[in-house]
């Protein structure tokens, strides 16, 4: 990508400081996940009964939990699970939703069938659908990704279907068809390149909602195995201590809110970038 388009992508963030802050929080989360073993002051699994439920202090900034584990280290370690689930869900939703949406739009008969199936899936609330699937499949990280991803596959399919229907009617697609282009050519040269930017926006929102979904499943004990630190698991384990040790809930809870909120801000900024009005300097027509 040329420098020209790179500045175009950055401009909506610069124009809106809060979106830049969102981008910053996300970057920090990614760094925390990548360097968790070096950043965490203690071993997140180390149990020390002598310091159970100590409030935040100089040695343990975020305090400790009922087993004496360092909350800060566990919060940092949890970023890994958050990013794993988030990217897993995004990959799953895009890998299934994009082909389903594009093919549905190009082949009306297949589209009729697929879109009705999507309608049925969309009739269930996403979380309820995920819960049901986990109950059937059993809790594991892969199943959490599958269960949440299925819910967002439907919305992705819908979006891609609508966009492709519109792209299919574009004059440049017709021009290509009039020169004898086949379906593969149309998809690879005209449809997919024009789907990239809207899908980037969709991905950021799916990522955000996957955070919330995964935290909810963890909290209900249906998500990642309890021995793996994750923000949802941390909340679930410590909910009985909410009055005695509120810090156990405050810090992981804040991280869930912060990542989801930041992703939404970034998604909004990306959407602004896609709005053609944003790129227009002189809005004059006549």
């Amino acid at each position: 990508m040329s420098t020209n388009s790179a500045t175009l992508w950055l401009r909506p963030f610069i124009a809106r400081p809060i979106a830049l802050a969102g981008l910053g929080v996300l970057l920090a989360t990614v760094l925390a996940a990548a360097f968790a073993p070096w950043l965490a002051p203690y071993d997140p699994y180390a149990i020390d009964p002598l310091i159970r439920l100590t409030p935040p202090n100089v040695t343990h900034w975020f305090g400790t939990d009922q087993f004496g584990r360092d909350t800060l280290s566990r919060t940092i370690q949890s970023a890994r699970m958050a990013l794993l689930i988030g990217s897993g869900v995004v990959v799953f939703a895009l890998a299934t939703g994009v082909p389903a949406g594009v093919l549905s739009a190009l082949f009306p008969r297949l589209g009729h069938l697929l879109m009705r199936m999507v309608d049925v899936l969309m009739a269930f609330p996403t979380l309820l659908l995920a819960l049901g699937l986990i109950v059937i499949l059993g809790p594991s990280v892969a199943n959490v990704i599958l269960a949440i991803g299925l819910g967002y596959m439907t919305t992705t399919t819908r979006i891609v279907y609508g966009l492709t229907l519109r792209l299919r009617a574009e004059t440049y697609v017709e021009a290509s068809r009039s020169m004898g282009a086949g379906t593969v050519w149309l998809i690879s040269r005209h449809i997919l390149p024009n789907l990239v930017s809207p899908l980037l926006v969709q991905a950021s929102f799916v990522f955000a909602f996957a955070q919330l979904g995964a935290a909810s499943l963890d909290f209900l004990g249906l998500g990642a195995p309890p021995e793996i630190p994750s923000w949802g698991n941390m909340l679930a384990e410590s909910r009985t201590f909410i009055t005695r040790a509120p810090w156990l809930l405050i810090f992981p809870g804040m991280m869930i809110v912060a990542t989801a909120f930041s992703l939404n801000l970034v998604g909004d900024a990306l959407r602004d970038r896609l709005d053609p009005r944003f790129r227009q300097v002189f809005g004059e027509k006549g």
Binding site: T171, A175, M179
Partner: peptide, 15 residues
């Protein structure tokens, strides 16, 4: 071959 009416719509903006 065909030449289309609207020069804005007949070229793929991403190519």
């Amino acid at each position: 071959r065909m030449v289309f009416q609207d020069p804005n719509a007949s070229l793929n903006p991403r190519r």
